[in-house]
Amino acid sequence: WEITFERNGKRITVRTTDHRLLELFEKLWRNGADERELERLAEEINR
């Protein structure tokens, strides 16, 4: 799966075969987690 999240013109794409990681990322994104931390998390998930 691949999903791109966008907020205030900032886009972060997450790619993984584990839908649970996408759900976790989406919850953090929707709850306003720090964008720098989300970028780092996305990099780890995308590996």
Score class of each variant (00 low, 15 high):
Leu24Thr: 08
Glu39Thr: 11
Glu23Asp: 13
Glu26Pro: 00
Glu2Ser: 03
Glu43Cys: 08
Leu24Tyr: 13
Leu22Lys: 05
Lys27Val: 12
Thr17Glu: 08
Arg30Leu: 10
Gly9Met: 03
Trp29Asp: 01
Ala33Trp: 08
Arg15Tyr: 12
Ile3Pro: 01
Leu22Val: 10
Thr17Pro: 06
Glu44Pro: 01
Ile45Lys: 01
Arg7Ala: 11
Ala42His: 03
Leu38His: 00
Ala33Lys: 04
Arg20Tyr: 11
Lys27Leu: 14
Phe25Ser: 00
Arg36Asn: 14
Thr17Lys: 12
Val14Met: 05
Leu28Val: 07
Arg7Cys: 08
Thr16Val: 09
Trp29Phe: 11
Glu26Ala: 12
Glu39Ala: 09
Leu21Asn: 03
Glu43Asn: 11
Ile3Leu: 13
Phe5Asp: 00
Ala33Met: 09
Asn31Gln: 14
Glu35Tyr: 15
Glu2Arg: 02
Trp1Gly: 06
Lys10Ile: 14
Val14Arg: 00
Asp18Phe: 05
Arg15Val: 08
Ile45Tyr: 04
Val14Asn: 00
Arg15Gly: 02
Gly32Phe: 08
Ile3Ala: 10
Arg40Tyr: 08
Thr17Gln: 12
Phe5Ser: 00
His19Gly: 09
Glu2Asp: 07
Trp1Glu: 04
Ile3Tyr: 14
Gly32Arg: 04
Ile45Glu: 02
Leu21Thr: 04
Asn31Gly: 13
Ile45Arg: 01
Arg7Trp: 11
Glu43Tyr: 06
Asn31Phe: 05
Leu38Trp: 09
Arg47Ser: 14
Leu21Phe: 06
Ile3Thr: 06
Thr13Ala: 03
Asn8His: 08
Asp34Phe: 15
Arg11Asn: 07
Lys10Asn: 08
Asn46Ala: 09
Val14Lys: 00
Glu23Val: 13
Ala42Asp: 01
Arg30Met: 09
Glu26Asn: 08
Leu28Ile: 08
Thr13Pro: 01
Ile3Gly: 04
Trp29Gln: 02
Glu39Val: 12
Asp34Ser: 13
Leu38Ala: 01
Lys10Pro: 01
Gly9Arg: 02
Asn8Gln: 05
Ile45Thr: 02
Asn31Cys: 10
Glu26His: 10
His19Ser: 12
Glu2Lys: 02
Thr17His: 13
Phe5Pro: 00
Lys10Cys: 09
Gly9Ile: 00
Leu28Arg: 07
Ala42Gln: 03
Ala42Cys: 07
His19Asp: 05
Glu37Leu: 13
His19Thr: 11
Arg11Lys: 14
Val14Asp: 00
Trp1Arg: 07
Ile12Ala: 01
Trp29Gly: 01
Lys27Asp: 08
Arg30Tyr: 10
Arg7Leu: 13
Lys10Ser: 10
Asn31Glu: 13
Glu44Ala: 12
Arg40Asp: 09
Asp18Thr: 04
Leu24Gln: 11
Leu22Trp: 09
Ile45Phe: 04
Leu38Glu: 01
Glu2Gly: 04
Leu41Phe: 12
Ile45Ala: 04
Val14Tyr: 03
Ile12Asp: 00
Glu44Leu: 14
Asn31Met: 12
Arg15Lys: 13
Trp1Leu: 09
Lys10Leu: 15
Trp29Lys: 02
Leu38Phe: 03
Glu6Pro: 02
Glu35Asp: 14
Arg11Thr: 12
Leu22Tyr: 09
Phe5Asn: 00
Ala42Asn: 02
Trp1Ala: 06
Arg30Asp: 05
Thr17Phe: 15
Arg30Trp: 08
Glu26Cys: 08
Asn46Gln: 05
Arg11Gln: 12
Glu39Cys: 08
Arg20Trp: 09
Glu2Phe: 10
Glu39Lys: 06
Thr4Trp: 05
Thr16Cys: 03
Glu6Lys: 03
Leu38Tyr: 03
Glu37Ser: 10
Ala33Gln: 05
Ile45Asp: 01
Asn8Gly: 09
His19Leu: 15
Arg7Ser: 10
Thr17Asp: 11
Trp29Cys: 03
Arg47Thr: 12
Leu22Thr: 02
Trp29Val: 04
Ala33Tyr: 08
Leu24Ala: 11
Lys27Asn: 12
Ala33Val: 10
Thr13Phe: 07
Leu21Tyr: 06
Asp18Gln: 06
Asn31Ala: 11
Phe25Leu: 05
Arg40Trp: 09
Glu26Ile: 15
Val14Trp: 02
Glu26Val: 14
Leu24Val: 08
Trp29Arg: 02
Asn8Trp: 03
Asn31Arg: 07
Lys10Gly: 02
Lys10Glu: 04
Glu39Gly: 05
Ile45Val: 04
Glu43Trp: 05
Glu23Tyr: 11
Glu6Leu: 09
Asn31Lys: 10
Glu23Asn: 10
Phe25Val: 02
Leu38Thr: 01
Glu43Thr: 08
Lys27Tyr: 15
Leu28Thr: 05
Asn46Ser: 09
Glu26Lys: 13
Glu43Asp: 13
Leu21Gly: 01
Arg7Met: 12
Arg36Trp: 15
Glu37Ile: 14
Ile45Trp: 05
Asp34Ala: 09
Arg11Tyr: 15
Glu23Ile: 12
Glu23Ser: 14
Asp34Ile: 15
Arg11Cys: 08
Arg36Ala: 15
Leu22His: 02
Gly32Cys: 08
Gly32Asn: 08
Leu21Glu: 03
Arg20Asp: 09
Trp29Tyr: 09
Arg36Thr: 14
Ala33His: 09
Leu22Cys: 04
Ala42Trp: 07
Leu38Lys: 01
Asn8Leu: 04
Arg47Ala: 14
Arg11Leu: 13
Glu6Thr: 10
Ala42Lys: 03
Glu2Met: 05
Glu39Trp: 10
Lys10Thr: 13
Thr17Asn: 15
Lys10Ala: 07
Arg47Leu: 12
Ala42Tyr: 05
His19Phe: 15
Arg40His: 10
Lys10Tyr: 14
Arg15Thr: 09
Gly9Gln: 03
Thr13Gly: 01
Asn46Cys: 09
Ile12Gly: 00
Thr4Glu: 05
Arg40Lys: 12
Leu21Trp: 10
Thr13Cys: 04
Ile12Arg: 01
Leu24Ser: 05
Ile12Leu: 08
Arg15His: 06
Gly9His: 03
Thr4Gln: 06
Leu38Val: 02
His19Trp: 15
Asn8Lys: 05
Ile45Pro: 01
Phe5Cys: 06
Gly32His: 10
Thr16Tyr: 07
Arg40Asn: 12
Asp18Ser: 11
Glu23Thr: 12
Asn8Thr: 04
Ile45His: 02
Glu2Leu: 05
Glu23Pro: 02
Glu6Ile: 13
Glu26Leu: 15
Arg47Met: 13
Leu28Pro: 00
Leu41Met: 10
Lys10Met: 15
Glu37Trp: 09
Glu39His: 08
Leu21Lys: 09
Glu37Val: 14
Arg11Trp: 13
Arg20Lys: 13
Thr17Gly: 10
Asn46Asp: 04
Gly32Val: 03
Arg7Lys: 12
Lys27Phe: 15
Lys27Met: 15
Glu37Gln: 11
Thr4Asp: 04
Arg11His: 11
Lys27His: 12
Leu28Trp: 12
Arg36Phe: 15
Leu21His: 05
Gly9Leu: 02
